[in-house]
């Protein structure tokens, strides 16, 4: 570069920095405020969970986790997530395909309805299933109805003492409800932005519908899908309010991990509560880690396009 260019550039550069940036002390003050606020609200609680979990030593920690009630809570949580996440994943892909690839009236209403579970309090999410399946609800009324539409069904349900509320099916349903929008919310904007030209090209070139989906759509949406699934899973394993309404909280039977944490906490077994809580805190950290990694991959995919 010739000196002339440099002298021409330098003042411009100085002016530029000066007008669209803050003085250093303001910058440092803002960074300071942000970091203090975040350490107080995010970092400190996170460190606290793990410190408390090991407050009585590593032996007590593993003893708490090996407890049969804790073990049953872990298994129930894994079961609920293993049912809720795949179902909501299939739903999310279907909803995104219909909404992003086709035009139809009422699309915005459908989008709002898919968001509904996010705006419903977890306690109400549990309540609605009690009202449908509980003893005083629709199912309860049906079981005691004098003239049921399907007598065989009523008999079968009564014979098998079929229970949804205060039992495992209710917990699974409540979990499905609270994690309902996660995958769909992630995929719909992504697939809308990608349009339909690539899929249309694949079809014109002779690919079948499935081939188009597996070979064209799925590679395009895979990072968004992974992101949606891990968020869905984190919420499914951590849900507390909705599950606590429908579970009945029978220790060793209908307690999930969060409910087991509450039970230990209510017993004043704080170290035990934090030991179990550390499992979920660890899950949250893994979730954040995968999220960061997925965002990184997404950015890479964008650049390579």
């Amino acid at each position: 570069m010739t000196p002339a260019v440099t002298t021409f550039h330098t003042p411009h550069h100085v002016v530029h920095r000066h007008t669209t940036s803050e003085p250093p002390f303001v910058r440092r003050a803002l960074i300071g405020v942000a970091l203090v606020f975040l350490s107080l609200f995010l970092f400190l609680p996170l460190v606290f969970v793990f410190t408390q979990a090991f407050a009585k030593g590593i032996g007590f920690y593993f003893e708490t986790l090996r407890d049969p009630n804790a073990w049953s809570a872990i298994k129930l949580t894994l079961l609920a997530a293993a049912i809720a996440v795949p179902l909501n994943c299939v739903f999310g892909v279907c909803a995104a395909w219909a909404i992003a690839k086709f035009d139809f009236p009422g699309k915005n209403i459908l989008l709002t309805l898919i968001d509904l579970p996010f705006s419903v309090s977890p306690v109400i999410a549990g309540l609605i299933y009690v009202l449908v399946f509980g003893a005083q609800g629709w199912l309860g009324l049906y079981l005691n109805a004098d003239n049921p539409h399907f007598p065989w069904l009523q008999n079968w349900l009564n014979d098998h003492n079929f229970k949804i509320i205060f039992a495992v099916p209710g917990i699974v349903l409540a979990t499905i409800f609270v994690t309902f929008p996660f995958v769909a919310r992630e995929l719909i904007p992504l697939m809308q932005a990608q349009g339909r030209s690539e899929e249309e090209a694949a079809r014109v070139l002779g690919a079948s519908g499935w081939q188009t989906f597996w070979r064209v759509t799925l590679p395009n949406i895979k990072w968004g899908l992974i992101y949606g699934v891990i968020l869905c899973n984190a919420r499914a394993m951590g849900e507390f309010g909705a599950v606590s309404v429908v579970s009945g909280k029978i220790r060793g039977q209908t307690n999930t991990i969060p409910l087991h944490i509450e039970a230990l906490y209510d017993d004043y077994n704080f170290t035990g509560a934090f030991a179990v809580a550390s499992l979920l805190a660890f899950l949250a950290l893994i979730t954040l880690g995968i999220k960061t990694w997925v965002e990184h991959q997404q950015a890479k995919q964008e650049i390579s396009k």
């Binding site: 984190a234 507390f240 809580a277 949250a284």
Partner: peptide, 10 residues
């Protein structure tokens, strides 16, 4: 990402 019960007791 952190379950509400964990945030609550913490």
């Amino acid at each position: 990402a952190l379950p509400t019960a964990v945030a609550g007791i913490t």
